[in-house]
Amino acid sequence: MVTEKKNINKSRPLLEVRDLQTYFYTADGVVKAVDGVNLDVFPGKTLGIVGESGCGKSITTKSILRLIDNPGKILGGTMNLYDQSHDQSQDILKLNNQELKEVRGGRISMIFQEPMTSFSPIHTVGNQITEAIKLHLNHSKNEAIELAEDWLIRVGMSNPKQRLKQYAFELSGGQRQRAMIAMALCTNPDILIADEPTTALDVTTQAQTLDLLRELQEKNGMSIIMITHDLGVIAELADEVNVMYLGKVIESGTIHQVFKDPKHPYTHALLSSIPSLATGHRERLPILPGTIPHPQARPKGCPFNPRCKDFIEGTCDVEFPKQEKIEEGHLVNCHLYSK
C-alpha cells in the first residue's frame, strides 16, 4: 500500500492563518497567548515555528485544531484550509462539530511532545491506532488492523503484530513516538502538526525521529508544521520558519533567508546563541539579556523592546512595528526596517 504523491498546486497555501487571536481569561487577568498570528503552510513543505517557552507556539497549533480548553478562547482570525480535490477552502473556525471532527485527525493530524502520556495507559497501542483509522477511513476492523500494522512497519517498528497488542508504557520512548507518528499519519492527513516531537527524546532517537518524518514527508507529500525551541531541528527539517515572541510572529521567511540573514534583533540573538564547533577559538556565547516578561505585563509597543540592543526610545516602546517586506517571502516586524 503505497500512497502516491498528491498532484497539487504547490504555490497555493494549504492552510492560511490570518490574525489568529487566542486569549486566556485567568483569574489574574487576560493573557494574550496568541495575538495576531499569520501562518502559511504550503503543500509538501515544512513550516517551522520557533520561539522560547511561553511564546505561544503550542497554543497557535492547538488553536488550528480548536483544541483550546477553558479558560482559553479563540477570539478571532481566519484559518482557511484549502481542499485541492474540490478547489475550495473552508475556515476551520467556522466549522460545525461534525466538520471539525473530520478535519481533526483526518486532514490535520497532530503529534505531541510526550508520547508516553499522549497514549492512554490502559488501552493498547493497536486499539488507539485502529480507532483513528476507523474514524476517518471506511475500513472494517480487520482492514484497520492490517493498515495499522502496515503503518508500524513504515515507521520502522519491529514485530508490528505484537506491538499492536502492547501498551504505551511497554514501549521505549523512541518506539512510542514512532507509534504516535503512525497513529497521526495512518489516515493520510494533508498536514501533520508536530508539537516539539523530539524534546522528550534522547539525541540519537531525536535524529532518527526527524529522519523518519522527512522520509515520510517525501513519500506522502504531506505538509508539516514543526514547533520547537530547538533551532537545530528547524535547520534540519524546515523549508520555512516563523519566529515567535510573546504571541506574535516577529519574523518569517525561508530557512535560508532567516538563518543566513536574520533581520529581527531577537532572531539575531537566538541564532548567535548557538554554540559553533567551526570557530577554532574559545569564546563566551552571547546571551540574550533579561527574561520573557510576565504574560500579564506585556511591554507596550514591540514586546521585545526591554531586551533589545537596538531599542529606539519613543518608537519601540510606543507602537508595535508594522510588517515590513525585506525581500520576496522574508517579512519582519521591527522598527529598524520601517520605511
Partner: peptide
C-alpha cells in the same frame, strides 16, 4: 494529554 490526543484524532 491522552485526552487531547483523542480529541485531535476526531
Amino acid at each position: 494529554p491522552y485526552v487531547i490526543t483523542a480529541r485531535a484524532k476526531g
